[in-house]
C-alpha cells in the first residue's frame, strides 16, 4: 500500500519544529508501523537526508521505549498495544497519517519524535521501591500473598513506563503511571512499611516535574498498552488522603 506520512521534525530541544510530508510507497500490510518507518528512513538515508529519529528497542511492546502520537492517538488506533506492536494491516492504501511526539512539559522533545522521559525515573527515585538490602531477606515463601492481591499487584506492575498516559491526558497528568507504581507495591505485604511516605513523596515529585492534574477523563487507560485501570488512580487518591491525614512524609 502507499501512504502519506506527515512527520514532526525538530532538529533539537530548542529548535523550532514542524511537519514534513513523506510518501511511503508499497508498504506490506504485514510490516509493523516501525518497520514502515525503517523503510522510509532507508530511502531518506540513500537520498542523503537525515532519517527520522524515533525511539525504539525491544520492538515487542515491553521496554516502553517507543511511542508516537499517530493521528492524535498515542500508540495509534490499536488498543492494548505499544506503537511497535502496531501493524500496517490497520491502514489502507492512500491513508494520510500524522505522527507527533509525546507532548508534555515534563517530556521535552529531544529530536524529531524522541522525548526525554527521565522525569519518570526521578519519581521512582523518591519511593518507588521497597528498601531491602541484598541478602537481608526472609525465605521466599515465608510471607504468604493472597492470589487476588498478587494478581492485582501484577496488573499494576505490568506498566512499561512508556508515558502514553501522559501524552493522552488532556491535562498531561502522570497519574496513571504513578498510581500503577504506588499500587503495585502498596497492594503487597512487603510494601506496607513505606506505604504512606511512598505515596506522599512520589506525588510530590510528580508535581515538581510539572505534570498536570487528573480530572478523571480516563483517556490514559484507553491508550495504555498494558490497559492499566484508572481504579489504581482512585487507589492512589485514597492512599494519599489517608497518608495526608496521618501527616507524614517529607
Amino acid at each position: 500500500m502507499d501512504l502519506g506520512l506527515n512527520v514532526w521534525r525538530q532538529a533539537g530541544p530548542a529548535a523550532q519544529g514542524g511537519f514534513v510530508r513523506y510518501e511511503a510507497k508499497d508498504i506490506s500490510e504485514h510490516a509493523s508501523f516501525l518497520e514502515m518507518l525503517d523503510i522510509v528512513n532507508e530511502r531518506l538515508t540513500e537520498a542523503g537526508e537525515e532519517p527520522i529519529v524515533f525511539e525504539h528497542d525491544c520492538r515487542e511492546g515491553i521496554c516502553g521505549c517507543c511511542g508516537l502520537v499517530i493521528n492524535g492517538v498515542p500508540h495509534g488506533p490499536q488498543h492494548g498495544a505499544a506503537t511497535c506492536q502496531l501493524h500496517m494491516r490497520h491502514y489502507k492504501h492512500g491513508d494520510e497519517i500524522w505522527i507527533e511526539p509525546w507532548r508534555a512539559k515534563a517530556f521535552p522533545v529531544m529530536k524529531d519524535l524522541m522525548v526525554d522521559r527521565n522525569s519518570f525515573d526521578r519519581i521512582m527515585q523518591v519511593g518507588g521501591y521497597i528498601s531491602v538490602r541484598t541478602g537481608s531477606v526472609p525465605d521466599a515463601n515465608a510471607v504468604l500473598v493472597q492470589k487476588e492481591d498478587a494478581d492485582l499487584a501484577m496488573d499494576a506492575a505490568s506498566c512499561i513506563g512508556c508515558g502514553a498516559c501522559v501524552a493522552a491526558c488532556p491535562n498531561a497528568s502522570a497519574m496513571l503511571f504513578v498510581s500503577a507504581k504506588v499500587s503495585h507495591l502498596g497492594l503487597l505485604p512487603q510494601g506496607q512499611p513505606e506505604r504512606r511516605d511512598r505515596v506522599l513523596n512520589m506525588v510530590a515529585q510528580m508535581d515538581e516535574e510539572g505534570f498536570g492534574n487528573c480530572t478523571n477523563h480516563g483517556e490514559c487507560e484507553a491508550v495504555c498498552p498494558k490497559q492499566i485501570s484508572t481504579d489504581f488512580i482512585a487507589q492512589l487518591n485514597r492512599d494519599l488522603f489517608g497518608a495526608s491525614l496521618a501527616a507524614t512524609g517529607r
Binding site: Y129, I130, V132, T134, G135, V137, P138, D139, A140, N141, V143, L144, V145, Q146, K147, A150, D151, A153, M154, A157, H184, L185, L188, Q190, G191
Partner: peptide, 23 residues
Amino acid sequence: SNNIMDQCVAQGIPFAREYGGLL
C-alpha cells in the same frame, strides 16, 4: 538460585501465586 528468589520476593516482585498464597 535460592537466595535470588528470596531477594526478588522481598523486593515486591508479584510472582504467580497459588490460592493458598504460596509461590
